[in-house]
Design a protein around this nucleic acid. Structure first.
Lengths: 342, 342
DNA sequence: TTGTAGGCGTTATCAA
DNA sequence: TTGATAACGCCTACAA
């Protein structure tokens, strides 16, 4: 059932049918014809072809969302925000998952460009890797040049709109909070060495700690995957080294949970033997005991903000060399995993 | 940059450019022209328009995924499976979220139909509600009639392909397992009364329990939302009623976690004061203490199976009155929340 | 192997 | 207000 069928059935022209069904900015349709067309459409179970509309109108109604792993609560909550905001704007979300491979981001941007997605939100971690970063930049540039709008969540990518999470602020605030609670001897599970978000959190945390007179020796800063297994493995290494810091800060909640598991496996009790803190305040935490001290990121809001940003700002702003940046605040949430030391 | 531009730049016809770039089942292009075209495309940063291709070819490369809440680990893990399988098949995933409203499913199916999605996977809960069910059926029928393929996860919807989770089997197995561990006095948090998946799990669980001589009195079967808050609220009601069953079975893990929170709030210790079991084995559980006894559903596999099903079977099979059903097995996972009673 | 031309389902321009 | 008709970007018989 195409629009022509409907037009014939209603005995009107194609143009009139189009205007009656999908409206027109300028023209309007007489009430009689309008109802006739609508009735015909109903009778024929007509459903407009969004692809054809996109072609004719020159723009689609979809936004792309790139994540590393949709099953990770960090990303799935952002996705929720994106889906909600997109839905309210009458847009579809095309979900693209890199499955943890930064290089796939580039392919996915290309794919989304082929789909002529109006906008792209990239929510994966950024890595300090010249090759993948510049490839991503190039892909995004082409995308924007072809009329799309892109926004990145977290670490900014030069030239693109960004929803900037106050990672450093949060990490510093966390450092102050734990020092105030009496912690001095601290270790950090920092994610992969090139993991920018992790690095920023780690550096800000360590700097603030140092400013407060509580240095983190280099050998107390471990690296590992930014996921559960990585956190567990890093913690296991730390423990195996014989270190028993008063507190361990993992740069993502998921890593902290992995670390928590490793502690249990080693027979250590958090917080009695070791205090623990994470970053993100993912939903999972509501069910974790002891409650994990963390830095809250309003993840859903972050996703929604990215969509708004990308829809309002449009491609031009970024092209003009003035990419917009929205800053999202973070907040320390103290829980039982870091009790005051007496 | 359109294909015409590329053709002109390369000095060949549109047809040749098309064949060189996107291949052709029958025709082949001479090596010299092919490289010329490819070079031109590269130079012009040409990116094929998937919408136009979809129109010309008469089919898109996208599959729709309908979930109730992408931030719920149950759905996000299914989504992961769907995204993975779709990616392998060269398809995009259009994510559609009902935000917990069964009626929105119908709209979303319509939306996905307009997008001409090749296939739709519906992963929301089913409700025993004539209005919404028949509306959904009607929408799916129209979708299938217009050439799409649809599959439902969980409770079957008549006439559609289904990935059937062995909920009843799992619930019965769980009943046997807990009885064997010595539990007799049991309560059930059953989700909303019309929640079909919850109902099936609850009824199978209760029936098996009864068969083993351990009846669940009606007043020990509570209803509530199928989410965290619902589980917490139902558990609170149960406790407020003065009941202190030996074991509480919540029909979803998320509810069980809510119940666990309610127990803590009431000062009860699981499993010392009360044993607890859930259903699903969502990822969240790996970080929950005490480990929650549950029935494992291979969620990721379920999502992937749905995609395979819908791609292999196609629309015709369902139309022909023989919708395919893939059965996915479940497995009881005993953890510390239900220790053997002595 | 290459090119010509018609068509996919809509929208939008331009007359009537 | 209505109706032809040319795009939109691509694919694909059909011809050459």
């Amino acid at each position: 059932m195409t629009l022509s069928d409907v037009a014939r059935e209603a005995g009107v022209s194609l143009a009139t049918a189009s205007r009656a069904i999908n409206g027109s900015p300028t023209r309007t349709v007489g009430p009689e014809l309008r109802t006739r067309v609508l009735a015909a459409a109903e009778r024929l179970r007509y459903s407009p072809d969004a692809n054809a509309q996109a072609m004719a109108r020159g723009r689609t109604t979809s936004v792309g969302l790139v994540v590393h792993d949709i099953a990770d609560p960090y990303f799935s909550t952002i996705a929720r925000g994106v889906a909600h905001a997109a839905g309210r704007a009458g847009l579809q979300v095309i979900l693209a998952s890199t499955e943890q491979d930064p290089l796939r981001e580039v392919e996915l941007v290309g794919l989304l460009r082929r789909q002529r997605a109006r906008a792209i939100v990239i929510a994966g971690w950024r890595y300090d890797d010249e090759a993948s970063t510049s490839a991503l930049r190039a892909a995004l540039d082409e995308y924007v040049a072809s009329g799309g709008a892109a926004a990145v969540v977290g670490q900014p990518v030069p030239g693109t709109h960004t929803v900037r999470v106050a990672d450093a602020d949060g990490a510093r605030a966390l450092a102050r909070a734990v020092v105030e609670r009496g912690y001095r001897d601290v270790a950090v599970l920092g994610g992969p060495a090139e993991h920018l978000t992790g690095r920023e959190r780690r550096e800000a945390f360590c700097a603030e700690l140092e400013a407060l007179g509580a240095r983190v020796p280099a050998e107390r800063v471990l690296t590992g995957g930014p996921d559960h297994a990585g956190g567990a493995e890093a913690m296991a290494r730390l423990l195996a080294s014989g270190a028993r810091p008063q507190l361990v800060f993992a740069v993502t909640d998921v890593m902290a949970l992995g670390a928590l598991a490793a502690c249990r496996a080693a027979g250590l009790v958090v917080p009695d033997d070791l205090a623990l803190a994470g970053f993100g305040d993912i939903t999972t935490l509501r069910d974790v005991v002891p409650g994990l001290t963390t830095v809250r990121i309003p993840l859903e809001e972050v996703g929604a903000a990215a969509v708004r940003l990308v829809l309002e700002a449009g491609p031009d702003a970024a092209v003009a060399g003035a990419p917009r940046v929205v800053e999202v605040a973070t907040e320390v949430v103290l829980r039982e995993s870091t009790p005051p030391r007496t």
